[in-house]
Protein backbone atom coordinates (compact mmCIF):
# COMPACT_ATOMS: atom_id res chain seq x y z
CA UNK A 1 0.00 0.00 0.00
CA UNK A 2 2.83 2.38 0.87
CA UNK A 3 6.09 1.88 -0.91
CA UNK A 4 9.18 4.03 -0.44
CA UNK A 5 12.15 3.69 -2.74
CA UNK A 6 15.47 5.37 -2.02
CA UNK A 7 13.93 8.49 -0.50
CA UNK A 8 16.40 11.24 0.40
CA UNK A 9 15.78 14.71 1.72
CA UNK A 10 18.07 17.60 2.57
CA UNK A 11 17.59 20.81 4.54
CA UNK A 12 20.26 22.81 2.80
CA UNK A 13 23.31 20.61 3.03
CA UNK A 14 21.98 18.68 6.04
CA UNK A 15 20.74 15.24 5.08
CA UNK A 16 17.52 14.46 7.00
CA UNK A 17 16.58 11.32 5.12
CA UNK A 18 19.28 9.20 3.62
CA UNK A 19 18.24 6.66 1.00
CA UNK A 20 15.22 5.28 2.85
CA UNK A 21 13.35 2.32 1.40
CA UNK A 22 10.55 0.35 2.98
CA UNK A 23 7.02 -0.78 2.36
CA UNK A 24 3.82 -1.09 4.33
CA UNK A 25 1.27 -3.67 3.23
CA UNK A 26 -2.46 -3.27 3.58
CA UNK A 27 -3.56 -4.00 7.13
CA UNK A 28 -0.04 -3.88 8.46
CA UNK A 29 0.97 -1.94 11.57
CA UNK A 30 4.48 -0.55 11.37
CA UNK A 31 6.13 1.19 14.28
CA UNK A 32 8.91 3.67 13.51
CA UNK A 33 11.29 4.39 16.36
CA UNK A 34 14.70 5.88 16.92
CA UNK A 35 16.47 8.68 18.77
CA UNK A 36 15.20 12.25 18.38
CA UNK A 37 16.40 13.96 15.26
CA UNK A 38 16.72 10.67 13.42
CA UNK A 39 14.15 11.68 10.78
CA UNK A 40 11.17 9.55 11.91
CA UNK A 41 8.62 12.36 11.78
CA UNK A 42 10.01 13.64 8.52
CA UNK A 43 9.74 10.17 7.05
CA UNK A 44 6.04 9.75 7.75
CA UNK A 45 5.26 13.33 6.77
CA UNK A 46 6.72 12.51 3.37
CA UNK A 47 4.10 9.78 2.93
CA UNK A 48 1.22 12.24 2.63
CA UNK A 49 3.30 14.95 1.04
CA UNK A 50 3.39 17.33 4.01
CA UNK A 51 7.16 17.33 3.62
CA UNK A 52 8.68 17.45 0.16
CA UNK A 53 11.64 15.22 -0.62
CA UNK A 54 14.30 15.61 -3.27
CA UNK A 55 15.15 12.09 -4.33
CA UNK A 56 13.45 8.75 -4.62
CA UNK A 57 9.81 7.81 -4.97
CA UNK A 58 6.93 7.15 -2.62
CA UNK A 59 3.98 5.24 -3.96
CA UNK A 60 0.64 5.17 -2.17
CA UNK A 61 -1.58 2.68 -3.96
CA UNK A 62 0.46 3.30 -7.11
CA UNK A 63 -0.01 7.07 -6.87
CA UNK A 64 3.37 8.79 -6.83
CA UNK A 65 3.34 11.23 -3.91
CA UNK A 66 6.28 13.33 -5.05
CA UNK A 67 4.80 14.07 -8.45
CA UNK A 68 1.07 14.00 -7.88
CA UNK A 69 0.91 17.71 -7.16
CA UNK A 70 -2.54 18.17 -8.58
CA UNK A 71 -3.98 15.25 -6.63
CA UNK A 72 -2.23 15.83 -3.36
CA UNK A 73 -5.40 16.96 -1.60
CA UNK A 74 -7.28 13.87 -2.82
CA UNK A 75 -4.43 11.66 -1.71
CA UNK A 76 -4.27 13.26 1.72
CA UNK A 77 -7.96 12.78 2.27
CA UNK A 78 -7.32 9.02 1.97
CA UNK A 79 -4.59 9.07 4.64
CA UNK A 80 -5.49 10.09 8.17
CA UNK A 81 -2.86 11.82 10.24
CA UNK A 82 -2.49 12.39 13.96
CA UNK A 83 0.06 14.93 15.22
CA UNK A 84 2.18 15.16 18.31
CA UNK A 85 0.51 18.39 19.41
CA UNK A 86 -3.01 17.29 18.40
CA UNK A 87 -3.49 20.33 16.17
CA UNK A 88 -7.22 20.46 16.62
CA UNK A 89 -8.69 23.67 15.25
CA UNK A 90 -9.11 25.78 18.41
CA UNK A 91 -11.80 28.05 16.99
CA UNK A 92 -14.19 25.20 16.21
CA UNK A 93 -16.15 22.92 18.51
CA UNK A 94 -15.06 19.29 18.74
CA UNK A 95 -17.77 18.08 16.38
CA UNK A 96 -17.03 20.83 13.83
CA UNK A 97 -13.41 19.75 13.89
CA UNK A 98 -14.47 16.29 12.81
CA UNK A 99 -17.05 17.53 10.32
CA UNK A 100 -14.87 20.02 8.45
CA UNK A 101 -13.04 17.58 6.18
CA UNK A 102 -16.13 15.48 5.58
CA UNK A 103 -18.11 18.48 4.40
CA UNK A 104 -15.46 20.40 2.50
CA UNK A 105 -13.35 17.60 1.07
CA UNK A 106 -15.65 14.60 0.78
CA UNK A 107 -18.71 16.71 0.07
CA UNK A 108 -20.92 14.98 2.62
CA UNK A 109 -24.06 16.73 3.76
CA UNK A 110 -24.16 18.38 7.17
CA UNK A 111 -26.54 15.73 8.45
CA UNK A 112 -24.44 12.86 7.23
CA UNK A 113 -21.15 14.23 8.56
CA UNK A 114 -22.79 15.10 11.87
CA UNK A 115 -24.02 11.53 12.19
CA UNK A 116 -20.63 10.04 11.27
CA UNK A 117 -18.85 12.40 13.68
CA UNK A 118 -21.09 11.39 16.55
CA UNK A 119 -20.45 7.71 15.81
CA UNK A 120 -16.73 8.31 15.95
CA UNK A 121 -16.93 10.42 19.09
CA UNK A 122 -18.90 7.65 20.69
CA UNK A 123 -16.26 5.19 19.63
CA UNK A 124 -13.44 7.17 21.24
CA UNK A 125 -15.64 7.68 24.30
CA UNK A 126 -16.18 11.42 24.00
CA UNK A 127 -19.73 11.83 22.72
CA UNK A 128 -20.71 14.02 25.67
CA UNK A 129 -17.98 16.51 24.73
CA UNK A 130 -19.15 17.07 21.15
CA UNK A 131 -20.01 20.72 21.57
CA UNK A 132 -17.07 21.75 23.72
CA UNK A 133 -14.04 23.53 22.35
CA UNK A 134 -10.66 21.78 22.19
CA UNK A 135 -9.26 24.10 24.85
CA UNK A 136 -11.75 22.69 27.34
CA UNK A 137 -10.50 19.12 26.94
CA UNK A 138 -7.50 17.36 28.44
CA UNK A 139 -4.58 16.38 26.22
CA UNK A 140 -5.66 12.76 26.04
CA UNK A 141 -9.17 13.73 25.08
CA UNK A 142 -7.89 16.13 22.44
CA UNK A 143 -5.75 13.45 20.91
CA UNK A 144 -8.69 11.05 20.78
CA UNK A 145 -10.70 13.74 18.99
CA UNK A 146 -7.79 14.12 16.58
CA UNK A 147 -7.91 10.39 15.88
CA UNK A 148 -11.65 10.65 15.27
CA UNK A 149 -11.01 13.55 12.90
CA UNK A 150 -8.62 11.41 10.91
CA UNK A 151 -10.98 8.44 10.87
CA UNK A 152 -13.88 10.60 9.73
CA UNK A 153 -12.42 10.68 6.25
CA UNK A 154 -12.69 6.86 6.11
CA UNK A 155 -9.00 6.68 5.26
CA UNK A 156 -7.16 3.72 3.79
CA UNK A 157 -4.25 4.25 6.17
CA UNK A 158 -3.45 6.24 9.30
CA UNK A 159 -0.20 7.99 10.15
CA UNK A 160 0.66 8.77 13.76
CA UNK A 161 3.44 11.23 14.53
CA UNK A 162 4.43 10.66 18.17
CA UNK A 163 0.78 10.69 19.29
CA UNK A 164 1.55 10.29 22.99
CA UNK A 165 4.74 12.33 23.38
CA UNK A 166 2.96 15.53 24.45
CA UNK A 167 0.70 13.77 26.93
CA UNK A 168 0.84 13.47 30.68
CA UNK A 169 1.64 9.86 31.64
CA UNK A 170 -1.82 9.10 32.98
CA UNK A 171 -3.39 10.00 29.65
CA UNK A 172 -1.16 7.92 27.44
CA UNK A 173 -3.14 4.74 27.84
CA UNK A 174 -6.50 6.15 26.84
CA UNK A 175 -4.95 7.15 23.50
CA UNK A 176 -3.04 3.90 23.07
CA UNK A 177 -6.21 1.91 23.77
CA UNK A 178 -7.94 3.58 20.85
CA UNK A 179 -4.93 2.89 18.64
CA UNK A 180 -4.71 -0.76 19.69
CA UNK A 181 -8.37 -1.23 18.89
CA UNK A 182 -7.83 0.38 15.52
CA UNK A 183 -4.90 -1.87 14.79
CA UNK A 184 -6.83 -4.97 15.74
CA UNK A 185 -9.59 -3.98 13.33
CA UNK A 186 -7.08 -4.18 10.51
CA UNK A 187 -6.31 -0.52 9.84
CA UNK A 188 -3.08 0.08 7.96
CA UNK A 189 -0.96 2.13 10.35
CA UNK A 190 2.41 3.77 10.41
CA UNK A 191 3.22 4.93 13.92
CA UNK A 192 6.16 6.99 15.10
CA UNK A 193 6.37 6.28 18.81
CA UNK A 194 8.58 5.41 21.72
CA UNK A 195 5.85 3.29 23.29
CA UNK A 196 7.50 -0.10 23.03
CA UNK A 197 4.60 -1.70 24.89
CA UNK A 198 2.36 -0.64 22.03
CA UNK A 199 4.86 -1.96 19.50
CA UNK A 200 5.05 -5.32 21.28
CA UNK A 201 1.30 -5.61 21.43
CA UNK A 202 0.17 -4.73 17.91
CA UNK A 203 3.07 -3.99 15.60
CA UNK A 204 3.75 -6.31 12.69
CA UNK A 205 7.05 -4.69 11.89
CA UNK A 206 9.44 -2.26 13.52
CA UNK A 207 11.58 0.25 11.68
CA UNK A 208 14.52 1.71 13.56
CA UNK A 209 15.98 4.95 12.28
CA UNK A 210 19.19 6.76 13.10
CA UNK A 211 20.71 9.83 11.47
CA UNK A 212 18.23 9.79 8.62
CA UNK A 213 18.88 6.19 7.74
CA UNK A 214 16.67 3.16 8.17
CA UNK A 215 18.96 0.96 10.24
CA UNK A 216 16.59 -1.86 11.02
CA UNK A 217 13.46 -2.97 9.24
CA UNK A 218 12.25 -6.31 10.54
CA UNK A 219 9.38 -8.13 12.21
CA UNK A 220 8.50 -7.26 15.75
CA UNK A 221 9.82 -10.55 17.11
CA UNK A 222 13.12 -10.21 15.33
CA UNK A 223 13.48 -6.64 16.58
CA UNK A 224 12.76 -7.32 20.22
CA UNK A 225 14.43 -10.72 20.12
CA UNK A 226 17.77 -9.61 18.99
CA UNK A 227 18.14 -6.39 17.05
CA UNK A 228 21.07 -6.78 14.79
CA UNK A 229 22.60 -3.32 14.80
CA UNK A 230 24.62 -1.94 17.63
CA UNK A 231 22.71 1.34 17.56
CA UNK A 232 19.33 -0.30 17.84
CA UNK A 233 20.61 -2.34 20.75
CA UNK A 234 21.87 0.69 22.62
CA UNK A 235 18.64 2.58 21.86
CA UNK A 236 16.54 -0.25 23.19
CA UNK A 237 18.62 -0.67 26.30
CA UNK A 238 18.16 3.03 27.02
CA UNK A 239 14.41 3.15 26.69
CA UNK A 240 13.62 -0.26 28.14
CA UNK A 241 15.64 0.31 31.29
CA UNK A 242 12.76 1.57 33.40
Amino acid sequence: MIEMKNVSKWYGSFCVLNDCSTRVEKGEVVVVCGPSGSGKSTLIKCVNGLEPFQEGTILFDDISVGEAKANLTKLRSRIGMVFQNFELFPHMSVIKNIMLGQEKVLGRSEEESDKRSMELLHRVGLSEHAHKYPGQLSGGQQQRVAIARGLAMDPDAMLFDEPTSALDPEMINEVLDVMVELAQEGMTMMVVTHEMGFARKVADRVIFMDEGRIEEDCTKDAFFGEPRGERAQSFLSKILQH
Binding site: T73, R76, S77, F83, N85, E87, L88, F89, L100, M153
Partner: peptide, 13 residues
Protein backbone atom coordinates in the same frame (compact mmCIF):
# COMPACT_ATOMS: atom_id res chain seq x y z
CA UNK B 1 1.13 27.58 14.17
CA UNK B 2 2.61 25.71 11.22
CA UNK B 3 1.03 22.54 12.62
CA UNK B 4 -2.45 23.98 12.07
CA UNK B 5 -1.70 24.43 8.39
CA UNK B 6 -0.41 20.87 8.22
CA UNK B 7 -3.48 19.55 10.05
CA UNK B 8 -5.66 21.25 7.46
CA UNK B 9 -3.59 19.82 4.64
CA UNK B 10 -3.65 16.38 6.21
CA UNK B 11 -7.45 16.14 6.02
CA UNK B 12 -7.24 17.12 2.37
CA UNK B 13 -8.15 20.81 2.44
Amino acid sequence: RQGQLQAGQAIGL
